[in-house]
Design a protein around this nucleic acid. Sequence first.
DNA 1: GTAGGGTTAG
Length: 630
Amino acid sequence: MLCYSSSSSSSSSSLHHGNNNNHLRLPTEQHLHLLQSFNSPFELKQLHTHFIKTSLPLSLLPLTQVASVCALTPNFTYAQKIFQRVKTPEIFTWNSCLKAFAEGESPNDAVLLFYQIIKFGLLPDSFTLSFVLKACLRLLDVENGRIVHGYVEKLGLSSNLFLKNTILHLYGYCGEFDDALKLFDKMSERDVVSWNIMITHLIKRDDIERAFDLFSQMVVRNLRSWTLMISGFVQCGKPKEAVDLFFEFEKVGLEPNEVTVVAVLSACADLGDLNLGRRIHEFSNKSGFGSNVRVSNTLIDMFIKCGCLEEARGVFNEMKERTVVSWSAMIQGLAIHGKAEEALRVFDEMIRVGMKPNWVTFLGLLHACSHMGLVEQGREFFTSMTSDYGIVPKIEHYGSMVDLLSRAGLLQEAREFIKNMPIKPNGVVWGALLGGCKVHKNIELAEEAIENLSELDPFNDGYYVVLSNIYAEAERWEEAARVRKLMRDRGVRKTPGASSITVDGVVHEFVAGDESHPQAKKIFETWDKLVEKMKVMGYVPNTSVVLLDIEETEKERFLYRHSEKLAVVFGLINTPARTPIRVMKNLRVCEDCHEALKLISTIGNREIVVRDRNRFHCFKDGSCSCRDYW
DNA sequence: GTAGGGTTAG
């Protein structure tokens, strides 16, 4: 049990602080008993302190274990003192201490201890190096990382894959991707982890093409490789590719785990793919993933983004443990479904159960207020998030506030708000003001907004389109044309509106003006019949939303081929009566379509759920869940 | 006693 030399048991030890008595004392029976019966590292540490204070010979203490106490209550000074006492320490002991430091609150202590070990002349082994590398990783300390890398080479451990992989990860993690790549290229032996690390960092750099290239050469892929790539596609905004890869993955015959499930569900949320989402939900219940908080959180998000608020609520209600993410997802979900009051109630409940909100929670609350015109309430949240919860507003919160004020018609106040922001406004902030200017027909402020936007976000077509629409609505055609010319000159093209609907598991996509669908003839015939009935009910085509310089009748024809109209009519034809029609649109719903869909929900006796790029519209019995406030 | 993948927001 005793593993250090006689000198460390000397009573003149420097550890005898607060005690000048160098006289060697003998331990009492009680001490000896304690030495054999301590139950925890804590007790051992107390005993150690006691020995020091009372000048009892430290040789009696199992110092290896004392060192490992550091592993449980990491304290560098304490470790250093013990280290100074030990003449023939075993590297093993120090490794466990290093590990604790590397994983604890002060990873820098691991780096310090590592240099003590070196200074002492003790030979580090592969574990020593791996722990200190881990500390460097957590500290983003690439300088010391390089030094440790040097030791790896010097000590002849360069063929150790564990170490090499950790160094790869460290370089990538610290933003030194080129170094990681150089090392990867030089490695004589690589395993699946080496490849996975390189793919991870390519994804982090948003280089999904190269990441997928590496993945496709890989000879051996494990579950992590697949999950990494699927989640990489989602992170890089390619949910379709993520889902396709998941189908490939299923063919290989591997079983998804919780992490895979989270990645696929995120893709389903982005795509609005309810079919796959439901299938994964069942699978995850069967596999017992239901108790995993992240899985449940992602399920909530998936159901919300697929328009199934009730099912999202079901998952939320069944959760035994909820995190701030669960609550925030629910609040944000209710917000985009236009259920502001309920979102606020969920927030009250969240506070009542003692859950601390974060910045995302408040973003959800501000969205709820903004989508429903609750100006005062929104203002209160904005103030309270800082004063009551100590959360510093981010640019997103400012954007949301400008949105709230502008939509409510408080345009001057919104402008003042922007002028007084403590951080530089971005395109989203000015864009929110521009949106309000459109609704409330304020050309002057719109021009100011676009001036700022031309600088901040010059290639975003949406802003030019809004300004052009504002001019067109005011019948200022020349200016509308000038904006369109500006777009052309700058090479900005309007993103075509596109809507999709899934029928029998097949996704049908419609682009504005599209007459190429196999059922196009039937769709237009049905539409013509509908529009007759709609006109009787008071529908007047709003051609001002059509940007093109064309004849009025041509404009109408174009208006009738807006993507959301095509998708909904296709749904009417191809789905059973009285079932809901679910449509997804890449842009915001146009005003004319919004009016039309309200009427169609009555004529067709259907619930029509449209997810646009901002929120959900649920058309039912002639009205929309957004109460025309969007 | 050692390395790689996950949720709200965007």
